[in-house]
């Protein structure tokens, strides 16, 4: 749920990085946090982690400057990807305005990618939301593994699994090195702000 403060001319939106466990959601946020200036970023909040696994969520507030005279404040969240944390994912989804689905190129994550997207569909539906309405971008992460001997999926396989119905924009990324991370953020921010602004007729 976006918050539009007409008095301070601020728009607050919530963008969530969703996807299976270990696909690289937290890595995206960490890269963004480390690359942004202190004025543009707030404190990164990482709640309850066990080793590197997210148990609740990560939060990174960003200040993206002015668009159409409005100050754009974005809160980036990650969900815990592991299947057992479904209740937590539902909670974090509360008030979502935009989504990045981080899929994993690893061959062994083939099923998990699909399950996670289905889980997203289901949890949104419980809130009477659909992916036709909420902006979503796909990220195929861990591209650096493609030239190695580790078994990976092909881009075509991932597209068939995840983008047949969504038909949305795909970014091929290596989150650990930051490749494609800001491109993804830019695109989802643009779409999310556009979505919120047109909903409230803030654009001409």
């Amino acid at each position: 749920m976006a918050l539009i403060n007409l008095s301070k001319r601020e728009i607050h939106c919530k963008i969530i990085y969703y996807g299976p466990g270990r696909s690289g959601k937290t890595t995206n946020l960490l890269y963004i946090y480390n690359a942004m200036s202190n004025q543009a970023r707030g404190k990164m909040l990482t709640i309850e982690t066990k080793g590197e696994r997210t148990l609740f969520f990560d939060l990174l507030p960003l200040n993206l400057g002015k668009i159409n005279g409005f100050d754009i404040r974005i809160q980036l969240y990650t969900v815990p990807g592991q299947t057992i944390y479904e209740a937590t994912r539902k909670l974090v989804l509360k008030g979502v305005d935009g989504l990045v689905f981080v899929a994993d190129y690893l061959k062994i994550r083939h099923e998990k990618n699909i399950e996670s997207l289905q889980d997203l569909h289901r949890n949104l539906l419980e809130r009477n939301l659909t992916l036709e309405e909420i902006p979503i971008i796909l990220q195929f992460n861990k591209c650096d593994l493609l030239p190695t001997s580790i078994p990976t999926l092909t881009k075509e396989e991932l597209e068939t699994d995840l983008n047949r119905e969504l038909k949305t924009k795909i970014f091929e990324t290596t989150a650990t090195k930051g490749i494609g991370v800001f491109e993804t953020l830019k695109e989802i921010s643009k779409r999310t702000i556009h979505y919120v602004a047109t909903k409230h007729l803030l654009t001409s």
Binding site: A2, L3, I4, N5, L6, S7, G95, V196
Partner: peptide
């Protein structure tokens, strides 16, 4: 959940 659009008067109040 509906978005919240806040006007100056509501906020001040």
């Amino acid at each position: 959940m509906a978005d919240l659009v806040l006007t100056a008067s509501v906020l001040e109040e």
